[in-house]
Write a protein that binds this DNA or RNA. Sequence first.
DNA 1: CTCATTTTTGACATATTCCTCATTTTTCTT
DNA 2: AAGAAAAATGAGGAATATGTCAAAAATGAG
Lengths: 213, 213
Amino acid sequence: MNSSVHQLFRQQTIGKKKRERTRGALLDSAISVFAKKGYEGTRISDITTHADVANGTFYNYYQDKDQLLHDVALGLAVEITGRINEEMSDVTHAPTRVALATAKLLRTSRKEPEWLDVLLQGAFIVPEVQSATIQYLRQDLEMGVDQGEFNVDIDLLLVNQFISLIRVAALVDPTMSDETIENTCEAVLRLVGMSTANAKTQVIAACESLLEA
Amino acid sequence: MNSSVHQLFRQQTIGKKKRERTRGALLDSAISVFAKKGYEGTRISDITTHADVANGTFYNYYQDKDQLLHDVALGLAVEITGRINEEMSDVTHAPTRVALATAKLLRTSRKEPEWLDVLLQGAFIVPEVQSATIQYLRQDLEMGVDQGEFNVDIDLLLVNQFISLIRVAALVDPTMSDETIENTCEAVLRLVGMSTANAKTQVIAACESLLEA
DNA sequence: CTCATTTTTGACATATTCCTCATTTTTCTT
DNA sequence: AAGAAAAATGAGGAATATGTCAAAAATGAG
């Protein structure tokens, strides 16, 4: 086993002591297995097998599946949102930020479908992951209202609606085609109160700037 | 056990032979247990216990959980969508139909939270349930485009986005307050390309007609 | 290289769930 | 009310999962 393409957590632990490296292997395996079988559907043994360690090794690191999901999903949240936010540090126009962030997130999902899948599983199960995921989004939405671009109340419902549109994209089109990305970006902008035409314009602009990078 | 308030399937089998009555009890219990523990999380024994029958009885009716979910969710889909569609037979204005259907669906969820929960679980797992759920929705959306009210392409992604907004409402506010219902109705109208102001107007009108009934 | 310390191992005891089927109980037709 | 057919029962074997721990192996600091 251990045929993952990604190596997010093991990458982070290269050079560290054995303990951290094994933890990284478990976390990476958890991504693959949670994505494939779903959180409820995965057995501890699925993860240890995939990580090429003995059954008992799991219990040297975690007491149960919940703790593992917590670490995996939170790690993904920090990694993904941090990365995207950095890349947008110079963008101040809220609709552009929202469209760009959405497109970047879905691009990530095309390259590493398991990441978004597991992140979202975690966001709906572990409160702390939900907070981490929502954090930046909420800022950008409020910025859009302040700028007079978004015409809608920002509350918990809206933020969750936003996230659910992301999730649906991954569900309906796991290959995450350009078309799905663009349609989803437009949908989130309509959700926050932009007109169809306006949303289209913003998305085209955002996606162009994405191709340059 | 068997403390359900609802009795959808047992109601349908009153007067029928024992076989159908027991099947009804299993189906009603499945609603409660699936809603409480989730499909993956429920054990066959949870359902038989709740239905006040012996463990082995389950296997006189179904081979596995999947078949049970299929029957339960499809039954709910037929019941709920059929009911709502009947009540709207005289409404021809697409935005009104969409807002009304959404509000009625969420009202149902307020009264019987378990129904919508299980229906949606089924819609994301059993293809046949998804078809049954989508059926009417798609018609109304296309009607709205034809009437020049909705400004968006109708495809599988959009329909699923729509359904996911329904789901989020139930997730974020299980009590399903009036506010949540109205906000969700407005959100779905924005999703299909109506302006924030326009959506608000439609929802107010639709909700008023709902109070009369 | 050495060896105390850390980490891994995997057999096993415990626990859970599934599913069957011979037997008992209930149903309902006549 | 009798009795054949239908349905329900629940003990128990098979399969799967969990969590523990004494012993073995690997690590890495000096």
